[in-house]
Simulated scan of single mutants.
Amino acid sequence: MDPEIVNRLRCPVCAGTLAPATAGTAHALRCPRGHSFDVARQGYVNLLAGRTPHAGDSAAMVAARADFLAAGHYDVVSSALADAAVRALAEHRPDGGPPTPPADPVPTGGAYPLVVEPGAGTARHLAAVLAALPDAVGLALDVSKPALRRAARAHPRAGAALADTWQRLPLADASVAVLLNVFAPRNGAEFHRVLDPNGTLLVVTPVAEHLAELVDALDLLRVDPAKAERVAGSLAGHFTEIGTTEHRARLTLTRPEAETLVGMGPSAWHADPARLAARIAALAEPVTVTVAVRLSRYRPA
């Protein structure tokens, strides 16, 4: 893992600095108190303190979603994030220089902006942002090991770590320049702690028209009309919204792609599997679907 990333990681047990182990195996990170965390052969490091109540997406789910994203169906989201991240870093320092040093100083490095995505999945969106920011490094966080195996190699300047958004994030205070939150849980207090005071949080959420064709045909959960208010409430006291844009695209999908898309949303956990499968099988191909999302930009309060 890139030293610029490791320098900003913190032990999930004692919050101490982490560094590659110097004795025994090199495939581990260790803090001064001796807490050690294995680096999997696929490249991600396990920084989970204790057990997580859920294991995240399975290998089959991750593979299907990786294929779906690789086909470019959600590139409208990736492109919007990349554009917003470029703007955010341009505003980060008026002189275009590096971000403010973390309040919790790193031992070395820290010259490159760090982009972090909690709940990153396979890190396709993070990779798109890094491609637009040649001087930045990135870190994907997720609880799914199959997803992290892919995230660890999503981009040459990206690292990956097993971590739960609802626990303390394994990062130094004020060490992150840009946080990405794409259809994922939001931990306002922790996001605020790790984000540079001049940093930016980018939040992607669905709007009413999102996947409307599938919602109607398959009787899926509809987007909460109060979604924007609920997002703002989850960040209240920690962040201030500084701008919002909406982005749309029309997708032409096969039936299996539509099934994967449904599985990427909350309806997969609430619908009867047999009934949902039957309705998907009855869809006429090609399946035309609208992607409609809101991208909100926040600064620490």
Rank of each mutant, 00 (worst) to 15 (best):
P3K: 00
V6M: 05
V6I: 14
N7F: 00
T17F: 00
T17C: 09
L18Y: 03
A19F: 05
T25M: 01
S36L: 14
S36Y: 00
S36P: 12
R41T: 15
V45F: 03
N46G: 09
R51N: 10
A55R: 11
A55L: 05
A63E: 15
F68S: 08
A71R: 06
Y74L: 12
Y74T: 13
V76Q: 03
V77G: 08
L81A: 09
L81F: 08
A84D: 11
R87T: 14
L89E: 15
E91V: 01
P94T: 10
P98F: 00
T100N: 07
P101Q: 06
A103V: 13
P113N: 08
H125T: 12
A132S: 13
L133C: 08
D142T: 02
S144W: 00
L148K: 02
R153C: 06
L162H: 08
D164Y: 00
Q167R: 02
R168C: 09
P170Q: 05
D173T: 12
V182M: 01
A184Q: 04
P185T: 08
N187E: 11
L195F: 01
P197W: 01
V203S: 04
V204L: 10
H210A: 09
A212L: 05
A212G: 09
V215C: 09
A228R: 12
A236E: 15
G243S: 08
T244E: 15
R250G: 12
L251R: 07
L253H: 11
R255E: 09
P256D: 11
A258E: 07
E259F: 04
T260G: 12
V262H: 04
G263A: 14
M264S: 11
P266A: 15
S267R: 05
W269M: 13
H270F: 11
A281W: 09
A281I: 08
L283D: 13
P286L: 01
T288R: 04
V291K: 02
A292N: 07
R299L: 14
